[in-house]
Simulated assay, not measured.
Amino acid sequence: MSENNDSSEGRFGRTADSPTVMQNVDAAARELARTLLRSARHGALAVLRPGDGHPAASRVIVTTDFLGRPLLLMSDLTLHARALAADPRCSLLVGAPGKGDPLTHPRLTVFGTASAIAADDPERPALRERFLARHPKSALYADFGDFRFVRLEPQSASLNGGFGRAFELMPDDFIDRPAGELETTAMRARDHINAEHRDAVDRIAAKTGYEGRGWRIATLDRLGFEISRGDALRRVEFRADAVAGGGFRSAFVDLAEGKR
């Protein structure tokens, strides 16, 4: 994405003569954006308060659907649910700070519109399974009558990778393309690996810098997967798109054998 791309002006609040420190979006920025969003367990959701339109922020638990779009679970009784019912525009901030200055740690803000998943929507069972795979304790209330899964359809995003690393992203920079029945194939691959190759998951985790044993694959997509262990959730990316690289088996063999 060019710094002088006219399509980004206005959308990101800039005018033609506004100075910018934004960098060109490259593969590293796209991977960082995917990692921040898809490994997030929670985030800050900003909405417009009904009645006066005042900005309101709430902490929400987060998953992503198979394409990488944010998926939330919320009660109709909450302020943010009522706000989204009145005006679906919102933003979601993800990225947990570590040691030292919080502003040196990467974060991503996704701007978009939210839509609730109806109870009889054919997608709901798969979305529910995916959400509970990352947040198993949510099974206690996910099916309560006042709770809804809500999906955020991204329109743009702002990525801050730390001081001097700012990027303006469009959805195709961090959201995957649809791929037919690939999601069903991915779920079968995940279940097989968790059942038959637990040691391989631990080896992949160790090679990627995540210590300990007992990791399992929580969710999987065409570009990588999330592993979980207790309350920890980590993103691991494949060397290449699983569709183009020979399928999920080849992608996992490459990682397990240290070819990453």
Rank of each mutant, 00 (worst) to 15 (best):
1 M>L: 13
2 S>Q: 13
3 E>N: 13
5 N>F: 05
5 N>C: 08
7 S>I: 10
12 F>I: 03
12 F>Q: 04
15 T>A: 12
16 A>W: 13
18 S>L: 01
21 V>C: 09
21 V>I: 12
21 V>Q: 13
23 Q>P: 01
30 R>S: 10
30 R>E: 09
31 E>F: 00
31 E>Q: 13
33 A>N: 05
36 L>R: 02
36 L>N: 02
37 L>P: 07
38 R>L: 11
44 A>W: 06
44 A>C: 06
47 V>P: 00
47 V>N: 01
49 R>K: 14
49 R>S: 14
51 G>M: 08
52 D>Q: 10
55 P>F: 05
64 T>I: 04
70 P>M: 09
71 L>Y: 00
74 M>F: 05
74 M>L: 15
75 S>G: 11
75 S>T: 12
76 D>N: 11
78 T>K: 02
79 L>N: 05
80 H>E: 04
81 A>S: 15
81 A>I: 06
82 R>N: 12
82 R>T: 08
85 A>Q: 15
87 D>R: 09
87 D>P: 01
87 D>C: 09
89 R>H: 09
90 C>K: 02
90 C>T: 09
93 L>H: 01
93 L>Q: 01
94 V>D: 05
95 G>M: 06
95 G>P: 00
98 G>N: 00
102 P>V: 07
106 P>E: 08
106 P>D: 04
107 R>S: 10
108 L>A: 06
116 A>R: 14
119 A>C: 04
120 D>P: 03
122 P>D: 05
124 R>Y: 03
129 E>K: 13
132 L>F: 08
133 A>C: 10
136 P>F: 10
137 K>H: 12
137 K>S: 14
139 A>S: 13
140 L>S: 10
141 Y>R: 04
142 A>E: 09
144 F>K: 12
144 F>I: 11
144 F>R: 13
145 G>M: 06
147 F>E: 07
150 V>R: 07
152 L>A: 07
154 P>W: 00
154 P>I: 01
157 A>N: 01
157 A>R: 00
158 S>F: 12
160 N>F: 09
163 F>C: 05
164 G>K: 11
165 R>Q: 14
165 R>T: 03
165 R>L: 11
166 A>P: 03
171 P>T: 06
172 D>L: 04
172 D>V: 02
173 D>Q: 04
175 I>R: 06
176 D>E: 12
176 D>F: 00
179 A>N: 13
181 E>K: 10
181 E>Q: 13
182 L>E: 12
183 E>K: 09
185 T>R: 15
185 T>P: 03
187 M>C: 09
188 R>V: 10
189 A>P: 02
190 R>P: 06
191 D>R: 11
196 E>K: 15
200 A>R: 13
202 D>E: 14
202 D>K: 14
203 R>C: 04
203 R>Q: 14
204 I>H: 05
205 A>V: 05
205 A>P: 03
205 A>S: 04
206 A>W: 10
206 A>G: 13
207 K>M: 15
209 G>W: 07
211 E>Y: 01
212 G>I: 11
213 R>Q: 15
213 R>L: 11
216 R>Y: 06
216 R>V: 14
218 A>H: 07
220 L>R: 09
220 L>Q: 08
225 F>L: 15
228 S>Q: 12
233 L>M: 15
236 V>D: 01
237 E>W: 05
240 A>Q: 11
242 A>R: 06
249 R>M: 08
